[in-house]
């Protein structure tokens, strides 16, 4: 009988992997999760966390103030000083900055460092990449918009405002926020996918959002009040993403409008809905078209 050896050297050489390989769908989901976390700087450098976290804070602050005010004044007013569905429009600059910072961080970065080929030489297809990135940024924006709404909601409940009514309003506003998120993420990503230079991406997104909103609002104001043509002013709202989605939720979700002019009548409402979906579809198509052409090596 041999003696039991008391020492042993383990083989720490190369190990084969025979565990599960999860396939396209799960890879796409992993990229989605990774990109979503990345949008808030999680899993990235400390510097990458500063801006998104700061914006999240800035976004939440007015909601918190509103919640406090509501609790102080609810006996007199019996409601929130600002309806849920208007919050996005009021805080539009924050949304624009978030998008301008994070859409290029998501796409331009992969283009600049040429990591795209590494993704495409893996199980996913190009459309999976687009889906994961689009989904992630839309979710990130949605979360940015949701947090303040939830704060207001909690404030409203604490102030003992009617729970059923508040819940209904909140859900509708969340639905609106989702549409905002999908439209804005799409526009931001399309622009970001065109340049490997982050700075240009940031500038272009800000330019498009700020300029279109400023121009459309100015025009709408002048036409509605100086000319008194509310219908035409309403139609003009189609021309900027912010006023478009605002019109969408005004008409579909019966939200209170923040634009100078809401969609003109039922026909206008239908057009707003169609244009909103067309914009989302166009962003999706453009992104896929763009990534079909990205060279792999």
């Amino acid at each position: 009988m041999t003696e039991q050896p008391s020492g042993v050297i383990h083989d720490i050489g190369y190990r084969k992997y025979d565990g599960p390989r999860l396939g396209r769908a799960r890879v796409t989901r992993a990229l989605y999760a990774h990109s979503l976390r990345g949008a808030y700087g999680l899993g990235r450098s400390a510097r990458a966390k500063v801006l998104p976290m700061l914006l999240l804070g800035v976004m939440a602050l007015p909601a918190f103030i509103i919640a406090v005010i509501t609790n102080v004044t609810s006996d007199i007013t019996g409601g929130l000083p600002l309806p849920y569905s208007r919050y996005v429009m009021v805080t539009m600059p924050i949304l624009a900055i978030f998008l301008a910072a994070q859409a290029p961080a998501s796409l331009s970065r992969d283009l600049r460092f040429k990591t795209v080929p590494l993704y495409f030489s893996r199980p996913m297809e190009r459309s999976d990449y687009v889906l994961a990135k689009y989904g992630a940024l839309a979710t990130a924006v949605f979360l940015l918009l949701t947090l303040p709404l939830l704060i207001m909601y909690v404030g409203a409940l604490l102030a003992e405002l009617p729970a059923g009514e508040q819940t209904g309003d909140l859900l509708l506003a969340l639905l609106g926020a989702a549409v905002f998120a999908v439209v804005f993420a799409g526009i931001g990503l399309v622009i970001a996918s065109l340049t490997p230079r982050r700075g240009f991406g940031v500038a272009a997104i800000i330019t498009v959002l700020a300029l279109s909103f400023a121009a459309v609002s100015a025009l709408q104001g002048i036409i509605r009040y100086e000319v008194g043509d509310a219908d035409l002013a309403g139609w003009l709202g189609l021309l900027s993403p912010a006023t478009l989605v605002d019109g969408f939720q005004t008409w579909v979700l019966d939200a209170s409008s923040s634009s100078v002019a809401p969609p003109p009548g039922a026909a206008g409402g239908v057009v707003y809905v169609l244009v909103t979906f067309a914009v989302i579809g166009a962003c999706w198509a453009l992104l896929n078209l763009r990534y079909r052409k990205v060279a792999v090596s």
Partner: peptide, 9 residues
């Protein structure tokens, strides 16, 4: 990350 992109848990 790249391992995850290849389908590893």
């Amino acid at each position: 990350h790249m391992a995850r992109m290849s389908g590893l848990p």
